[in-house]
Design a protein around this nucleic acid. Structure first.
Lengths: 344, 344
DNA sequence: GTGAAAGCGCTAACAT
DNA sequence: ATGTTAGCGCTTTCAC
């Protein structure tokens, strides 16, 4: 019968190799300090026993963790965020870190994340939420972990961030529609108070002003960056007596649902109205019609944020940060078949 | 200037409360063993200092970790998997565990996952991949961690699994098309060798046989569960001289891309062909036409798998496992507008 | 170049 | 009911 023997410890390796535990430790972390022969002997024993250092003990002794927590709002739409996460994951893994994904999902979960951060087994913190976990005055940043914000800026002094130029991107949405000849715009917003929504809203208003149009050119509907918001927005749109011909949606999911709903009601895109999305998820290329949208450098945003954190953890002052703590990337307008000149 | 003081340790709390460290420890882990007054005193000190136990030290001492690794194949489509992950995450978090997501993405990453499992800071393992990380004969299961498979079965003896009844679901796809009057089927498969693909293929073949049709009724195209596979599959389909009127796609992404491609070529769904997807992602309800698909209980699959692992970690032999290690859930056909009777 | 030994912060015996 | 103390497995001085 196979004996379920406990995993080998450093002492087992030392015994097998006929050296001290200190030598085994050095063979693994500072090989150059050993004679070739000794090192070989130790490594052979390691191999023979299938030894892997216990990272918990190592961490308790050395104080340094390999775990990075990524804080994500629960309803960040998966197709967008998964690619940001991919960039984070690949970058962290290359540097030897391990990723923990912590979803914000109500007070209880937030508290657990705060405690996780305070419990001393994290190396650093990444956040994609504009609203950080904070429960009864206690913030996740209180633990003093090195942290970097990605995609959304919690606007905490001293917190570096990797961000999209949301304002410019939103401006590009408006400019595109106005350039096509649209004169009135229907805007299905993101959640009120949301960082991205706030900044993009500025861009949209600025675009309308720059075109010499008054505020009456903009009709807003409060959405939620979800399919349901697109459906509800479309319902509101359909009820309007005199419908704007240009429609801007907070994100691609919203835009797709909006198009589906107005099409079902007998309107045609882009004949009767033009629709612009935001994010550039893959799906935007496979809906009907193909969506005009803002393509975000999703992978790059995640990768840059992770890289920044890694540099900070390594004690390097990242060159990218000289501009005052924010690294800004640009989105670009990807024109599909959902936008065109208005009729007549 | 704010002094970046080190986080409080158990000794600091003891000092502040005027008790021993053991008492502080007990106040936190076994409060019933203390006098009310003592406990109150300690908790007040904990509060005052903002103390959170160092989980690394706790773990080194107690031997038990709170970390669960979920192994995910990189290209598991995000809209499907994120919901499975949600079920896992919520369930684990409720039980006090923390989730680490490990993407399989080539040999290097796989090796890191194997080492992570061997490094002693994991409580257990969840996998959604039919192909477990295995590098030069070393498997991630060698560490002997309690493990549960979800959605895909690596077919390792003794490994419990929570699975969809893929065969029955695939059978339902075929039966639906045949019930509508289709007599020939075009099937865009998943990746060759993939667990789900293998089982579903069986269901499809069985369905065709049961309908009294010969193998010539089934035309296959090797897909990949991605948009690109749907596009390529459609291209192959369009080149056929005598096209089947029933189309089954390996998953929803594939089906959406397939529909988009054949529509662009001038065919109409479901007039010229009927298309059935698999998974039941939200998006299937917002493409054009709304997709007929197999709705998987995604959240429940993840939650059940996590629950199983939690029970195993707690030493309970889960009742759900009496059927021999596999817990099987059913998908159901969700009829949309992409299927109908064939013309003529 | 290598070994002996002191902790990292905590929990669980074992004393009292 | 509370205090004292021995480790958990490792890294890292400090000796030799």
């Amino acid at each position: 019968m196979e004996q379920a023997s406990r995993p080998p410890r450093i002492g087992d390796v030392a015994l097998q190799a006929g050296v001290s535990v200190a030598t085994v430790s050095r063979a693994l972390s500072a090989p150059e300090k050993l004679r070739d022969e000794t090192r070989r002997k130790v490594l052979a024993a390691v191999e023979a026993l299938g030894y892997t250092p216990n990272s918990v003990a190592r961490q308790l002794r050395g104080g340094s963790s390999q775990l990075v927590l990524v804080v994500v709002p629960r309803r960040s739409n998966p197709p967008f965020f998964s690619e940001v996460l991919h960039g984070i994951d690949v970058t962290l893994a290359d540097a030897g870190y391990v990723l923990i994904t912590g979803y914000m999902e109500g007070v209880d979960r937030d508290l657990r994340l705060i405690e996780l951060a305070a419990s001393g087994n994290l190396a650093g913190l990444l956040t994609t939420s504009g609203m950080l976990p904070e429960v009864s005055g206690r913030s996740i940043l209180d633990a003093g972990l090195p942290a970097v914000a990605i995609c959304a800026d919690p606007l905490v002094p001293g917190l570096p961030a990797v961000l999209l130029d949301d304002e410019a991107a939103a401006r590009a949405q408006v400019d595109h529609l106005i350039g096509l000849g649209h004169r009135r715009i229907f805007y299905v917003t993101g959640p009120t108070g949301n960082y991205n929504e706030t900044v993009r809203h500025r861009g949209i208003v600025a675009g309308i002003e720059a075109a010499g149009l008054g505020p009456e050119a903009l009709t807003q509907y409060a959405g939620n960056y979800q399919f349901t918001g697109g459906v509800a927005g479309a319902r509101a749109y359909l009820e309007m007596a005199d419908r704007p011909t240009g429609v801007i949606c907070g994100n691609d999911e919203c835009a797709v649902a909006f198009m589906k709903s107005v099409t079902a009601a007998g309107l045609a895109v882009p004949r009767d109205l033009s629709v612009v999305g935001f994010d550039g998820i893959e799906f935007a290329d496979y809906c009907e019609p193909t969506l005009t949208t803002i393509a975000q450098p999703r992978f790059a945003l995640g990768a840059a944020g992770a890289r920044l954190l890694i540099d900070i953890l390594a004690g390097k002052t990242p060159a990218a940060l000289q501009g005052g703590g924010k690294l800004v990337m640009q989105g670009h307008l990807r024109v599909g078949d959902s936008t065109g000149a208005p009729r007549g």
